[in-house]
């Protein structure tokens, strides 16, 4: 798999050793260098390219008299957007299980990771696209969509989980569109450098959104209009779905969930409905206990 190209300034802030583009920790002193996907977004080249695209978008918005809407959207993205992850009802139910409450000595007996994980040589769920974008840590990326509401990708999954930004902001990056489309549009193959300016870390996500959506802005648009253009899916060919894809490095637990909503218009089986109700029940029960 191809690794993203390292910037020359990608060195450990503690010991000065060169950091691996795919590892979180410094290989020399093990200092936490931050999630590799976020580090990539913070390279000078990417930040500069992204800013340039943002400035250009702002100009175009101004030219068509939508500067106010441009500013409003920027504020909305900064204040109201977060990541929504879609999942099956079964996964949602499992997310809320907490064996530590039911059992005594649970962690002492089974350890923090209760399961035997897939070995390092077998990348979970790797697909060509993920590999092209993230190289060897593709299996550590959880996918979601940037959203202004509690809903995520329509027609995906049974449940939408909106995550608390404080639990993911340091380890989440964004891609301007869905990764399949991105790879196709930019003709990315193994060994080719990823184009700069199309990925953003948390604090610059609004750059990415506005660079993408400026041309779709219209006068007097409101938040609900923007949600519709932020996430678009016709449910026919998923590769054509348009949304700002979120990449969360490593997983999250029940405490990261801000809201849990059922996907609209979805016909659930009896078992799925049960799982959903159980997940909702547990979520409500924990409602006051999230950290």
């Amino acid at each position: 798999m191809t690794s993203p190209v390292l910037g020359s300034q990608d060195t450990c802030s503690k010991c000065g050793a060169s950091l691996s583009a795919t590892l979180r920790h410094c290989p020399t002193c093990q200092t936490d260098a931050g999630a590799p996907n976020v580090r990539h977004c913070r390279t000078e080249g990417n930040l500069k390219a992204l800013k340039a695209r943002f400035d250009d978008a702002q100009s175009r918005a101004s030219a068509k008299g939508c500067l106010k809407e441009f500013g409003d959207l920027e504020a909305t993205i900064k204040n109201k957007s977060s990541v929504v992850v879609s999942m099956t009802a079964g996964m949602a139910k499992n997310l809320f299980e907490n064996p530590n409450v039911l059992y005594t000595n649970y962690e002492q007996l089974v350890g923090a990771n209760a399961r035997k994980p897939a070995g390092p040589d077998n990348d979970r769920h790797r697909c060509a696209v993920g590999g092209l974008l993230f190289g060897s840590y593709a299996n550590l990326i959880r996918y979601g969509a940037l959203s202004l509401t509690k809903e995520g990708l329509p027609t995906y999954g049974d449940v939408h989980c909106r995550l608390r930004s404080v639990t993911i902001d340091k380890r989440t990056s964004f891609l301007e569109t869905n990764s399949y489309r991105f790879v196709s549009d930019h003709k990315i193959v193994a060994g080719v450098k990823l184009p700069a300016g199309y990925m953003a870390c948390w604090e610059y996500r609004y750059h990415l959104v506005l660079a993408k959506l400026a041309d779709s802005l219209l006068v007097e648009q409101t938040e609900s209009d923007w949600q519709e253009i932020l996430i678009q899916s016709d449910g026919k060919d998923r590769k054509n779905d348009s949304f700002v894809e979120a990449h969360i490095y490593e997983g999250f637990d029940r405490n990261a969930i801000e809201s849990l909503v059922t996907a609209t218009g979805k016909k659930l089986s009896k078992s799925e409905k049960l799982d959903l109700d159980l997940a909702m029940n547990e979520f409500k029960r924990l409602g006051g206990k999230t950290k």
Partner: peptide, 18 residues
């Protein structure tokens, strides 16, 4: 399963096993 959909639906699962 549709691999595109699978990427979004199942990436959050944390109990993968060989």
């Amino acid at each position: 399963q549709d691999p595109v959909e699978a990427q979004y639906l199942y990436s959050a699962a944390q109990d993968w096993e060989e």
